[in-house]
Nucleic acid binder design. Structure first.
Length: 424
RNA sequence: GGAGAGAUGGCAGAGUGGUCGAUUGCGGCGGUCUUGAAAACCGUUGUCCCUUUGCGGGGACCGGGGGUUCGAAUCCCUCUCUCUCCGCCA
């Protein structure tokens, strides 16, 4: 959420920057500015009336104590009108606040200056790429066939137990999952991230804090009996650790990582995009989260991108890093880099990570602040996060790219975590 | 699931209608003393909003919401959460 003060002081800039996100903010910003002006005027009046009322009440107390009943009674009669006036002003004020808030939450985050113009994914900017696409011979199989042949993942069994999109991993398939999770967590720890094991369900307040609620409600599984939500990413519980928190400047940057299962309803997706591991309702992911001083968040974003790059390099997967254009960016992000790996049999790029700087957009909702110097006012911190990494598409690419007549080769770096070097 | 207790400032813990944003202790910060440190002593110590060029001024907040009252941390209603005991249980 963009702060009211910022909108109020820079309405033109907000409109201009949001145009890059293909968002016409003119009407909303205009209304916000107008309503805020009215709200402030109302507050001045209400505060004045309350000040008067407070003084009067104190006087009455004083008069009562000194036994001047008569005068106290006179003063009391004067309060009736004031009281009514305060009631009205407070109602007005509350109404204006609600209206402003409703508009305020409609505004996406402002894009960073380096965000490219563009409307569709085609206009995203490839920053760099690495690795070598494997040359596979005839008889190349997509990962869902490989998963069946080597008895790694059973999609139909998942349908029996739960439904489509809930695969069952077994044997070496299950071991590979566990190895990847441990590999990612261990790498993160070596890079200074503290490991967190978060709850997999969160309450409404947490859903709001990171921006899933109220509007993206349909994305999450809702446990209605207790009004909990299954997390769509560990970002939600991990970032919400810092909801309503004031950090000391010395605590920054906070670096957390977490493995979690992630649950997404993905309502309305079908077709070949959802085949195999390409899109699931439950999947595993290791997430990295950082909370930084506003002056350092873009340096940290680069650091996080470099870190994720090191992971796909260790896994020897052909990859490319993409800077999302304004039209393709998420609602809450100021700058996002996506990572895609090449899936050799499907012959397409699969998104496996998204690394974003949210600047103070999430922090404002979360009331996440830091204190620069003792005695100074706390200010909003910056939050960043990224997948490091999401497992299913990594597994898809690993299986497809590394298939040989003798089985599936495990990348060198992963063998210590796997305990085997080949799936025969 | 049954029964009970509670929610106050970073923490602990007072406060049951009138200068209470809140006694006190601990912690934190500053100072005196000391070669330095500890101890002791003194001072200071929340968040948010509005207003003002500035100094400053005003308002809100004692789990959330509503009510009674001239006046609520204190009384009433309601919701949420936490804890304890019993039952069940990985």
């Amino acid at each position: 959420m963009i702060t009211l003060r910022y909108i109020q002081e820079n309405p033109g800039e907000v409109i201009e920057k949001l145009a890059k996100k293909q968002f016409d903010a003119r009407e909303i910003v205009g209304s916000i500015v107008e309503l805020t002006e009215a709200k402030n005027q109302t507050q001045v009046q209400a505060d004045k009336a309350r000040a008067e009322m407070n003084a009067l009440s104190r006087d009455i107390g004083q008069l009562m104590r000194t036994g001047k009943k008569q005068e106290a009674e006179e003063a009391r009669q004067r309060t009736a009108e004031l009281k009514e006036q305060i009631r009205e002003l407070e109602q007005q004020f509350a109404g204006l606040e609600v209206s402003i808030r409703e508009l305020q939450v409609l505004l996406p985050n402002l894009p960073h200056v380096t965000v490219p113009y563009g409307k569709t994914p085609e206009e995203n900017e490839v920053i760099r790429s690495g690795g070598v696409k494997p040359l596979l011979g005839a008889g190349t199989l997509p990962h869902w066939d490989l998963a069946a042949r080597y008895r790694l993942i059973d999609f139909e069994l998942g349908v029996k137990l739960t439904g489509a999109g809930f695969p069952v991993y077994r044997g070496k398939g299950a071991q590979l999952q566990r190895a990847l999770i441990n590999f990612f967590l261990d790498q993160a720890r070596r890079n200074g991230y503290e490991e967190i094991q978060p709850p997999l369900m969160v309450n409404e307040a947490s859903g709001f804090g990171t921006g899933q609620l109220p509007d993206k409600e349909g994305q999450m599984y809702h446990v209605t009996a207790d009004n909990f939500y299954m997390i769509p990413t560990a970002e939600v519980p991990v970032t919400n650790i810092y909801r309503d928190v004031i950090l000391e400047a010395g605590d920054l940057p906070v670096k957390n990582c977490a493995y979690s299962a992630c649950f997404r309803r993905e309502a309305g997706s079908y077709g070949k995009d959802v085949r195999g591991l390409n899109r699931l309702h439950q999947f595993d992911k290791v997430e990295i989260v950082q909370i930084t001083h506003p002056d350092h968040s873009y340096g940290v974003l680069e650091e996080m991108v470099n870190y994720v790059e090191s992971l796909v390099q260790k896994l020897e997967l052909p990859y490319r890093i993409i800077r999302l254009c304004g039209g393709d960016m998420g609602f809450t992000s100021a700058l996002t880099y996506d990572f895609e790996v090449w899936s050799a049999a499907q012959e397409k790029w699969l998104e496996v990570s998204s690394v974003s700087n949210f600047e103070s957009f999430q922090a404002n909702r979360l009331k996440l602040r830091y204190r620069g110097e003792a005695g100074k006012k706390p200010e909003l911190a910056h939050t960043l996060n990224g997948s490091a990494l999401a497992l299913p598409r990594i597994v898809a690419a690993l299986l497809e790219n590394n298939q040989t007549p003798d089985g599936i080769k495990i990348p060198e770096a992963l063998i210590p975590w796997c305990g085997f070097d080949r799936i025969p």
